[in-house]
Every structure is written in structure tokens, then in C-alpha cells.
Simulated assay, not measured.
Amino acid sequence: MKKVKVAINGYGVIGKRVADAVALQDDMELAGVCDIITDWRIKIAVQREYPVFAFNDDFRKQMENAGIKVQGTLSDLIQKADIIVDCTPKKIAAKNIEKYKEANLKFIVQGGEKHETTGHSFSAENNYETALGRESTRVVSCNTTSIVRTLTALKNAGLLKKARGTLLRRATDPWESHLNGIMNTLVPEKEIPSHQGPDAQTVDPDLDVITAAVKVPETLSHLHYWNVQLTREAGKEEVLDAFRTSTRVALINYSDGLSANNAIKELMLALNRPYGDMYEVALWEDMLKVQGDELFYAYVVDNQAIVIPETIDAIRAMTEIEKDSENSIRKTNKSLGLRQKF
């Protein structure tokens, strides 16, 4: 089997997880990871025997002075790869794109970049086929991924008319909570809709979705509350069956002690998930209510992990090593251990 050689630019919160996920795939090979840092984070990549590259010669000298074995620069890594996943901080990826284009290298950016950067936004269960053979795509953000997953399940069941959601957003990534974030306050986003609703429409323009968002003083995950108008009256089991058609929505219950995001995080750690990650949307089954043609539900999103399986599927679609979305999703789910119920 020919393996696709995958490069990763940016070995941070998302990049290290993508690297680990690529290493688990039997149809992919990790060509290397690129960064500018010299601290413990990149040293973990060295310990895992990932080929490490520096962004340029100046950073290469700094990394080598810190005792890090460097294989070359980003330019060298580009030459070794079939596709590159740019996981650099927001707005930096857009500056790297010219390098990828000059080398005729397929590339993936993350949700912090604008849709116009690639002209295509990706979510595996919704539009895998439209990414086949593309030169570039954007894996949408964690919140947008959860919106598209859940609403696509309802849409495919013929139940979705319009959706209105409120997002309680974590203030920053957990490892940066000593540097950034908020304390003892809530910060509503000024604009309604918040950016996640329009972002979901970059994947599926037919979604009638409006979101509002509030930044909250915690870092573990995001929490969404949704009010959906259905196309007709439906029962709770019919709605749950619709959600069950998504292999990346996992049902949880208050009755199992999963009544808060910290309990869910503890469960992921108990399951020995890498970094305590949850790739699924964790949707409360016993909170979900249907009244006539109105649906109310809530779920939790792991902002650091949910886009990882989507990125793996995007690699397969763009390189066409797997043209069938269900086959790719099945392979990715199995390799990462996704479940439909906790």
C-alpha cells in the first residue's frame, strides 16, 4: 500500500494531536513536524522519534543550540511531503500558503483561517466528496465542527428546519490558562450571529442556523445549547435515532454522573484517551426534549480534539487514497477509538 507522506507545520495544541493521529494510520506516513520553539513541547516530538524541522535557518540554529536534532527547514520538509497540515497560530497559516503553492503541495489549514483562504471548508460527514482531489481545504473550527455534525444528522433525517444555538465558550486553551483568559466574569460576543453560524454555512449553505456566544471562565471545553425547529412533529426516540446516524456524536446521561464538563474530562482520562481527548460531540440523551415540532438539546465540545478525526479524513479525501467517505470515517474512528455512547 502506498502511504501518503504528511507534513505538519506547527507542533502545538492541534499539531501534536494531528501528528499522533497520522502516526496511527496504516495509509499515512509522518514526513515530519516543523516549528520554531525550543522548549519541552518540541522535545516531546524528538522523544517520539518524529522528524523535526525548523521554520528557517535562524530558528534551526536556536533549536540546535537547545540540543534538538533538526532534520532541516520547512523548505526541506515541503520537498518530502505529499500534503501539509498547517497548524500554526491564527493568521500565520495564510502567510505560509505561498510556500505551499510554489511547491505545488496540497495543504490543509485550520478553522482560525478564513474560508476564503482555501475556498473550501471541510466536515467529513457532510461534504467529504467535495474535497476529493482538491489542492487545499480548511477544517472548520471545533465549535463549527460540532454544529455541522449535529445539524447534518438532523438534516439527513429530514427533520431540520432551522436551528438557533447559544455557545458557552472556554476562555483559552488549558495550557495557557496562566497567561490568558478571564476570571470572575462572562464576556458576551457583541455580534449576533456569532461567527460559528455563518462558518457552518461555509460547509453547508443550506443550513438555517444562527448562533450567539459567551466567553466563560473555564478552559476544559465548550458547552452548546440548541433550540431547533423541526420540519414536523417528532418523538424523542426518532430524534435520538437521527443523532445516532452520526458516528461522531456520542450520547451521555446525567444519570451516569456526567453532569458537567469536568466529569466528562475525567471520564476521558479514565478511558486512557491521549491527553484526555474527546473526539466526539458528547450530547445529553436524558436532557434532550421534544415539544411538538421544537427540539431542545445540549452538548459538550472538546476544543482541542474534535477536529483531529476531521483532519485525518481531509487528508484522505484530498490525496484520494480513499474516495468513499464512510470507509475513511470508519478507519479514522477505529484508529482513534471513537464511540457513540459513553
Rank of each mutant, 00 (worst) to 15 (best):
K3G: 03
K5C: 11
G10A: 10
I14Y: 07
V18C: 07
A19Q: 06
A23N: 14
A23F: 04
Q25L: 13
E29G: 10
V33D: 12
D39I: 06
W40V: 12
W40M: 09
R41F: 10
K43Y: 07
I44Y: 10
I44G: 04
P51G: 11
D57N: 05
K61C: 07
M63A: 10
G67N: 09
I68H: 07
V70A: 07
Q79F: 08
A81S: 14
I84Y: 02
C87M: 07
K91N: 13
I92S: 15
K95C: 04
N96R: 14
I97K: 13
K99T: 15
K106I: 03
V109P: 06
G112F: 04
K114E: 10
H115W: 04
T117K: 03
G119C: 02
S123Y: 14
N127M: 04
A131C: 13
R134D: 04
T137A: 10
I147K: 03
T150D: 06
T150Y: 08
T152V: 05
A153E: 05
L154E: 08
L159D: 01
L159H: 02
K162G: 04
R164W: 02
R170W: 13
A171Y: 03
P174L: 12
V187P: 00
P188E: 06
I192T: 11
H195N: 09
H195Q: 08
Q196I: 13
D199E: 13
D204L: 11
P205F: 03
D208W: 01
I210P: 00
V214F: 13
H222T: 06
N227M: 11
T231Y: 02
R232D: 11
G235D: 14
D241K: 10
T245V: 06
S255L: 07
D256W: 07
L258H: 02
A260W: 01
N262D: 15
A270V: 05
R273A: 14
P274M: 05
Y275R: 15
Y275H: 15
D277L: 02
Y279H: 15
E280Q: 09
A282D: 15
A282T: 11
L283C: 11
D293Y: 00
L295W: 03
Y297W: 07
A298K: 08
Q304F: 05
V307Y: 00
V307N: 10
I315D: 04
E320M: 09
E322P: 00
D324N: 15
D324G: 01
E326V: 05
S328V: 01
S328W: 00
I329A: 04
R330K: 12
L336I: 13
L338A: 12
K341P: 00
F342S: 07
